[in-house]
Design a protein around this nucleic acid. Structure first.
Length: 428
RNA sequence: GUGGACGUAGCUCAGUUGGUUAGAGCGCCGGGUUGUGGCCCCGGAGGUCGGGGGUUCGAGUCCCCUCGUUCACCCCA
């Protein structure tokens, strides 16, 4: 209990069976992504600090107080990645991926790091699955990006969630809107909570996140971005919505939906779930048409999403029985009196070589304890070898689920194992 | 960064108005005579009661500090 070493705050160890659940979730996600033409990209967990400062925005919470930043021995400032989009765009530029043709459709899975106070659904190291489509401005690809999360949720049997979408405009229309909103906020500042007054100055769009009743009332008549979009943005947004409808993805327009990262333009979206506590966004993202330039590249549009795997797991646990069962051990080899360890090793090796998973006792336990171990591991079969079997050139197989056992000649052992594991019964 | 709740065996928890060697269930290890798991019975290992300080003849029980966990705010995946 008073252990000296513990996992750092906000991090955790993933052990069986959670570890296998996560890996099958990742597999399902990868399949869907691949099905949609996205290819895996893996970028370093470490990037130059400047990449995030420029990419995410100097004034964002992430950059100002949540990054794990340090100087390495050479005096270079590095940061544990707090998100995946900026690194992927950096890799796109650095690797000259545009020469492979556009759009580049890339996905990633891996840990992200943010130094926040942990709570339900929020960790300092967390897993994200994300995808980026770089090079296309077509609203169809916005819809595709959004539908991928939706497909994954459906595949996992999830239903109690809501997709919120909005458009935050572009360099043409957003500044005008922000000025209008600021003006409005000044007028009603008396009615706002201290927190909202601070936000009015620093990041006006965020006032819409306030849960305070009186603030919400005061904001009821606030100008809304949807009404201030320039014609191009309006058309783009409508296009994305039409495509979503065609894809059968249900959405709700939330004209107060604002995302925290500076790079978003046009389409933004969030999938919110019931029953997850206060961190209920499982997947979110949007378009970022200026990010590439921001990072020193040519003007290139892009759109993407990122999905919190731990939150996804919470959603699955809250709503559905987990749709995947872990793979069982096929065979546990038990040494009965008369069989030495060499024999066990020979059989183990032969069975494994045949592609059948197998394990055995490594604690020098007695027969009974070995049986117990086999049961604990939920092996489908126990293979017993002892004096009798050796004398007759056979092995005993025992079906733990049905408590039935039978003998087969050593020469036909592998074939019988395969037959049993396929048919699931002892008598073919 | 702010606030609330909680910290007793690997896990879930008991622990009476502060009183002698700190308990249960589950789990783990072993046994219940010949080579067989799950049920049952018996036995065993395992705790500086998160840590430090204080009050007291005496503290798991009271007080202070500290660390940690957790939930919420903030923010976000």
């Amino acid at each position: 209990m008073a252990l000296k070493y513990k996992a750092p705050r906000g991090t955790s160890d993933l052990v069986f069976p959670e570890s296998t659940r996560i890996s099958s979730l990742l597999e399902v996600a990868a399949r869907i992504l691949t099905l949609n033409g996205y290819q895996l990209i893996s970028t370093p967990i470490l990037e130059s600090t400047e990449l995030f400062r420029r990419g995410i925005g100097e004034e964002t919470d992430i950059v100002t107080k949540e990054m794990y930043t340090f100087e390495d021995q050479g005096g270079e400032s590095l940061t544990l990645r707090p998100e995946g989009t900026a690194p992927v765009v950096r890799a796109y530029l650095e690797g000259g991926l545009q020469s492979r043709g556009l759009p580049q459709k890339l996905y990633y899975m891996g840990p992200m790091f943010r130094r926040e106070r942990p709570q339900a659904g929020r960790y300092r190291q967390f897993l994200q699955i994300g995808a980026e489509a770089i090079g296309s401005r077509d609203p169809f690809i916005d819809a595709e990006i959004i539908s991928i999360s939706n497909n994954l949720f459906k595949k996992l049997g999830l239903s109690h969630y809501e997709l919120l979408v909005n458009s935050v405009g572009c360099a043409e229309c957003r500044p005008g809107y922000v000025r209008m909103l600021s003006g409005f906020l000044e007028g009603i500042s008396q009615q706002l909570c201290g927190e909202c007054r601070r936000r009015s100055r620093e990041n006006p769009l965020r006032v819409f996140d306030c849960k305070n009743e009186s603030c919400r009332e005061a904001l009821a008549r606030a100008p809304v971005i949807g009404e201030q979009l320039c014609p191009a943005c309006r058309e783009h947004f409508n296009g994305a919505l039409r495509h979503l409808e065609r894809l059968g993805v249900a959405y709700t327009i939330d004209d107060r939906l604002v995302r925290g990262l500076d790079y978003y333009t046009n389409t933004t979206f969030e999938f919110q779930f019931e029953g997850l506590g206060s961190q209920n966004t499982v997947s979110a993202g949007g378009r970022y048409d200026y990010l590439t330039e921001q990072l020193g590249g040519p003007e290139t549009p892009g759109v993407g999403f990122s999905l919190g795997v731990e939150r996804l797991v919470m959603a699955v646990e809250a709503q559905a029985a987990f749709p995947f069962s872990p793979e069982r051990l096929d065979v546990f080899v038990v040494a009965a009196p008369g069989a030495d360890r060499g024999r066990v090793l020979d059989i183990l090796t032969a069975v494994r070589a045949a592609g059948v998973s197998a394990d055995a006792d490594f604690m020098e336990r007695g027969l009974k304890a070995q049986m117990k171990q086999a049961a604990r591991l939920e092996a489908r079969l126990v293979l017993i070898i002892g004096k009798d079997e050796l004398e007759q050139g056979e092995v005993t197989l025992r079906d733990l689920d049905r408590s039935k056992q039978w003998r087969v000649p050593l020469s036909g052992m592998v074939a019988e194992l395969r037959r049993f594991l396929e048919d699931g019964c002892f008598n073919g």
